[in-house]
Design a protein around this nucleic acid. Structure first.
Lengths: 197, 197
DNA sequence: AGCGTTGCCTAACATTTGTTTGTGTTCAGG
DNA sequence: CCTGAACACAAACAAATGTTAGGCAACGCT
């Protein structure tokens, strides 16, 4: 079995194209025949490379989840104030997304089509990731860096909403590059739109 | 034809349940038989009330679009600073959503399944609405109320991301009520998370 | 009493869905 | 040259899809 690169090449090609299709039409509305046509082959031929339609979704979702976790791991190691940690977390999250905007879009919009027990596993990973951000926020409030007036759930959910929709509208060829985007987004959420007098 | 109320009653019932189903499973993955079962009838019976599956989606999407437009109409009439207009726009948007969280979720997640020419029409309404917010933002920058350092497209898209995901996580029975939610969300986006010294 | 409307049913339809089976071809490595 | 893997195909499958046709029962209205 020469899976090392042999599989990767063609299988990964299938998964990539699938990601594009899933992003565009949604998982449920995207048929295997659509996908096959995009690759210039017959639908049945897909099954030489993948076990099922859902396996594709699974690998897309869980691979992204791993990347997000790794990014946050790095941030948590640092010994910096909470507001700085938050900024770094946001920037990291954006960078992970920017590395694969298509997979990111699928990750956040189509994960609900995972079947059990994979859906449960996925949601656990997700809530864990969110809670780690929430903890940073709470640390920041305790340290007097953040307002205590804002509901913490609201704050963290707003944060993720802003982040997670980025793949839907961001154009990688646009004027603003991913790292600048991360910085500006972090600034906007931490400092707000208002001019500081 | 006594459409005035006769239709409304049962047809509206069908559409409401459909909205719940579409929100939960997504439009494409939700079958007419699922919907029928939820209503305790057979799938074929649905067609006494509606013309097609997509007609349901259409009425959900365009009814919400109308509500959003009306809300922003009111805000634009007011003669207040841009930052205040933005705050009012955000609060209005939240309130429209809070009035029907289910339809709101469908509106933003499932509109892509509209067929032409309805999709085109919908997207035009949407971009128009966004541009009106963008204009408020630009007025605010010109008036020196908002930072000029932040990319305007980024700002407005982040704004809508935060708003539009609300129906996905907001629990109407939670501690924070919709109007407080609107206020806090507006404050967070305009003033940021950081404590003002 | 008779009428039209409303609401639902059963039966059926053509299509599309994900997937399986079996077969053929191409090509690199021993 | 032979073997086996990688890749693709055509044909078929059962199941699920949105939708139509025709009919039956109950109700309010004149």
């Amino acid at each position: 079995m020469s899976e090392a690169l042999g599989n990767l090449s063609r299988k990964e090609q299938v998964i990539r194209k699938a990601a594009e299709l899933f992003k565009e039409k949604g998982y449920a509305a995207a048929s295997m025949r659509d996908l096959a046509q995009l690759l210039g082959i017959e639908a049945a031929s897909l099954y030489s490379h993948i076990k099922s339609k859902e396996e594709i979704l699974r690998s897309l979702c869980f691979d992204m989840a791993t990347e997000f976790r790794k990014s946050l791991d790095e941030v948590e190691k640092r010994n910096v104030p909470a507001s700085e940690k938050l900024r770094m977390g946001i920037i990291g999250h954006i960078q992970v997304m920017a590395k694969d905007l298509t997979a990111s879009a699928v990750f956040m919009n189509e994960h609900r089509h995972l079947s059990e027990p994979f859906l449960r596993d996925f949601l656990l990973l997700r809530i864990n990731y969110i809670n780690r951000f929430k903890k940073i926020l709470e640390d920041g409030v305790r340290a007097g860096e953040f307002k205590s007036t804002i509901d913490k759930k609201l704050a963290v959910m707003t944060l993720f909403s802003s982040l997670n929709w980025m793949p839907m509208w961001y154009d990688p060829d646009s004027a603003i590059d991913p790292s600048a985007l991360g910085y500006q987004l972090a600034d906007m959420l931490v400092n707000g739109l208002k001019k500081n007098p």
